[in-house]
Simulated scan of single mutants.
Amino acid sequence: MSAHRAPPPWWYDAGREPPFVARLLSAIYGAAIRTRLALYRGGLLRRRRAGVPVLVVGNLVAGGSGKTPLVIALVERLRAAGWTPGVATRGYGRDDSATPLWVDAQTDPVRGGDEPVLIARRTGAPVRADRDRLAAARALVAEGCDIVVCDDGLQHYRLARDLEIEVLDAHRRHGNRRLLPAGPLREPVERAAACDFHVANAGDGDANVGFGEWPMRLLSGHALPLLGGRPQPLSSFAGQRVHAVAGIGDPERFFAMLRGLGIAVVPHAFADHHRFEADDFQFGSDLPVLMTEKDAVKCTAFVGDRHYSVPIRAELPEAFWIALLDRLPHRPGAPA
């Protein structure tokens, strides 16, 4: 069984000084990042366009922050507005990641990656997994997409973008505001100011959402049996003990959501993108098992009739969607 790897304690405790080696490596990493940024800003490295509007969703902080639910919500809202969206993604953790791949609802998550398969299943949109985000975006355009949502793409500057959306955890925020490995940041914290929108994942509340940030709530009301059958209201598990399984960036967020519904959680935290095996579910007691949807796509081959997936949907203020759509270029074929 693979345990969840918690971040170093100093990442989210400004009162703890990171070790000297971490601070030294952070300084070296920061110099490389700033040099790369300067080369793009100076035009020595070129950004290239995909031929259609590109929306990039990403974060400055290493680890999960709620990007996937937001990407799903974006695809659905763009489609409702008349666009034909596609999703460009790296497909973190997939086998043979050097080979580009079309991902659909039937793709094995080992080949396609757990998040791309989940996005494909939930949206039905074309999903292209490729380490080269520009090549992925152009492949989507060739398939008829007139807008591209780039998942986890803030640091991939070669692909020119029309809008950038930073997603951050409203509770953890930017941690100690230091660069890796002394802190959780992939880029200097001032990079956030260049993003067009800032979405704060507040879980089921609005705590710690800052000025100029849009609150995002992650909601779920039911559980889906993995072997098929009727959805069960999550309220039906209230007062019961359940095994809760989460292999995501912050498993505690999932556990807290279930506890907030009155469910007695026996937590089982795994590393983000963990590749599950049957032995991972040998818990020693025959309780219902609730797991995140991202984990469930990898587990259908060895689960039983007491295993459930808990789908999550992102809810944002309607004013966010109005502001976002207002910033997009005029859609081809739409009435003037």
Rank of each mutant, 00 (worst) to 15 (best):
V303R: 09
R77E: 15
A193Q: 15
F237G: 10
A80D: 13
H4D: 09
K294N: 05
M1I: 12
A129V: 02
T292Y: 08
A22R: 07
C195V: 11
A81P: 02
M257S: 14
L325G: 07
C145S: 15
P53E: 06
P8M: 11
M257Y: 14
V87A: 07
Y308W: 10
R122M: 12
F237C: 11
R121E: 02
L70S: 12
I248W: 01
V103F: 04
I322P: 00
R49G: 15
V242Y: 02
P109M: 06
F276P: 02
A334I: 01
S236I: 04
R111C: 09
L325A: 06
P251S: 06
V167L: 05
H268D: 09
E315V: 15
D146C: 04
G153W: 02
A238V: 05
A314V: 00
L25I: 10
F197T: 04
A6T: 05
R49I: 13
P7L: 07
H4G: 14
V149H: 02
L316H: 01
L101F: 13
D108G: 10
R41P: 09
R79L: 06
D104G: 13
T123W: 00
S65A: 15
T300I: 06
I248H: 02
V310R: 01
P233R: 06
I28L: 15
V127S: 01
G51A: 11
L163N: 09
S65K: 04
A202N: 08
A200V: 05
A139R: 10
L101Y: 12
E164R: 05
L60C: 14
P109C: 06
V103P: 04
P126W: 13
L185C: 11
G82E: 02
I28A: 14
D250V: 12
D295R: 05
A334K: 00
P69V: 00
T89R: 00
M216L: 02
R133K: 11
P225L: 01
A105Q: 05
N208A: 14
R313G: 11
L74G: 05
V75I: 12
R306C: 01
A139N: 05
K67Q: 05
G63S: 10
R259K: 09
L316S: 00
A193C: 12
R306A: 03
D96I: 09
D152N: 01
R327H: 08
F302P: 02
E293A: 04
R46C: 09
P109H: 08
F237A: 10
A38N: 03
Y308F: 12
R161I: 13
F211K: 15
G260W: 00
D196H: 15
L101N: 12
P335V: 14
T107N: 11
K298A: 07
V289T: 09
A73F: 08
G304N: 14
A336Y: 13
P85S: 11
D132Q: 04
V148T: 03
C145E: 15
A129N: 03
G64Q: 07
P85Y: 11
V71L: 11
A50D: 07
M291I: 03
D305P: 03
F302Y: 03
P335Y: 11
W10F: 13
